[in-house]
Design a protein around this nucleic acid. Sequence first.
DNA 1: TTGAAAGCGCTAACAG
DNA 2: CTGTTAGCGCTTTCAA
Lengths: 367, 367
Amino acid sequence: MPPSRRAANSLQSPRLASAEPGHGVTLADVALAAKVSLATASRVFSHPQLVREATAQRVHDAARRLSFRPNLLGAKLRAQQTRIIGVMLPTLDNAVFAECWRGIEESAMSAGYSLMLVTSNYEPARERERVEYLLRHRVDGMVLTVADASDSTVLDQLDREAVPYVLAYNQVAAQGTGSQRHSVSVDNRTSADEGVKALIAAGHRRIAVISGAFTASDRARQRFAGYEDAMRANGLPVLAPVNLPSHTASNADQIRRLMADGTAPTAFFCTNDLLAIGVISDLKRLGLRVPADVSVLGYDGIALGGLVEPPLATVVQPNADIGAQAIARLLRRLGSAGAPQLADAAASQALLLPHALRLGGTVGPPA
Amino acid sequence: MPPSRRAANSLQSPRLASAEPGHGVTLADVALAAKVSLATASRVFSHPQLVREATAQRVHDAARRLSFRPNLLGAKLRAQQTRIIGVMLPTLDNAVFAECWRGIEESAMSAGYSLMLVTSNYEPARERERVEYLLRHRVDGMVLTVADASDSTVLDQLDREAVPYVLAYNQVAAQGTGSQRHSVSVDNRTSADEGVKALIAAGHRRIAVISGAFTASDRARQRFAGYEDAMRANGLPVLAPVNLPSHTASNADQIRRLMADGTAPTAFFCTNDLLAIGVISDLKRLGLRVPADVSVLGYDGIALGGLVEPPLATVVQPNADIGAQAIARLLRRLGSAGAPQLADAAASQALLLPHALRLGGTVGPPA
DNA sequence: TTGAAAGCGCTAACAG
DNA sequence: CTGTTAGCGCTTTCAA
């Protein structure tokens, strides 16, 4: 048999025996049934304005009748763009990122984009692996949070390959560094500074910082810098940060040691809410009352913090909005695919969203 | 020009001007560089055992030199299977599902499968929309949690189209109903029964159930049934369930009304931990102490519950494992693509994972 | 063990 | 407005 031009639809193709409605029905089948060409059928779905109303209707009818379901794979392969956005977050176990995902999913889906989510668990090695994975899927762009944006091989790679991406939570230097990186975050340092100043305004002088590993989070470092700013501005002693290994386990021993000291702090600034909730419990187990004996200020503004009693005092970030804006910015970059770098170079690369302080609750005057 | 058979690799193809390493390099380029055919190059990656060691090495070298990155789209389209698993969860804002995702991601990725996550927000309409979306992406199968597995158009559709899926959290009737649905969950009714019996053993007689909307969660209904079992078995009065609209807002008014009643309950069984944490706070705001004045038992065993003080007493589900097992079962079904229904019909469709009670903490004897 | 050839399902020039 | 045609990048018979 010569390489003959078969009819658009080969009836003898190895169709699976099982009759799965919608499965195996191709656009060609629909075109055949609607008595139009494959191209026209295609247009009905991708460029409806190019096809006459009546024709479109015939195609739609046929599609419905055959329960046609477009195979996005074919479209993507041919179109050389997947309309998939890769998302890499450290973990979903921290509500911050779960809330962020809500914003991401909502704005991506409503813009007709699909998502592929991976988590890095704050590990740079896993970041590389997961990003490579997203790249193999030919995502059109990425929204991600990396451990350390100022020293990230993954970001370097993305830059090198000119893959459009927008950072979420990671805050790139305002400007002047020449970095073309885009980010959406709050101003970590300034907001932390404000939070700690509120602690100082409440009368606290000995304030300690509890944080996760600095290596796993540039945000934690920036927030610590904000703490330093506030303390220095008030002539108060900057205490060495306490870096706790786990957010999700009791760190009672470390807390006990801190409080046993003659010069125990009267307030804690925790660089994230999850940590703050753990610290509050540890304090309670030590027989200390919050905020009567010790005040605790968190950072993140996860919904759960507002649910507990007393409510967690914290620096609130608009988590869902961070996700939504990151997608929005990425979409803008993807839209102007021509010369994106130049197009919005004037616009600030680092979008800073407003933060808020939620005080009261776990913050009160020193004992 | 006749429909001529061009060389495998067309040099005049519209390559984008931008030099993006790895982007645009195809298997054909690699084959050319390695001086083998496209077919051989392909085999090196998909069926290494079919190709001579030395040849494979040449191909690998060329691939590395050109920074070749396989385009999964081409492979998927041709292979007629995507190795993507669709995952639909109600929300990630409830830590139960975030924890479950961890198990899902880990076992899927390590099996070489990709994931596509969508959330339904407990809304059947959105369930349909999101599932259709996953289907268009031609996922090989799905792991999902639906609002109500016993009345789900989405599940009916999946059955009709013979799409392999495994339910997570939704617990299908043990057997006898003839349903071929697969599920991984704990035994909701039995575990709730045990939890409530523990409350009774602690001395409680008036126990109320606080739950989310029954329509949004068959688990909530099953857990309520477990409560009924426990109460009836002990000759205690079954109180009407209190269905709260939101997990993430204060429901203080409803709680106040309940407690104002002359016959206020001495213990609450909340059908999920998030709810329990909210209820505890509401109780505290009413000036009631937990567990001194009122006991609270949750359900889910989210990590956070163990962090608060006092620790949340609860029925613990192995969330990450539910996700991991759901993937494992799905993979088994996908593997034996031939006659899956018959192959493991003997095995229980409904995998019940062990639960555990975590007592103490917010549960004590009645006042 | 390797190569040639035929598509997977869809889109997008280019003609008509 | 519609049809013809040539692939997107990859896998997989079928032959050699």
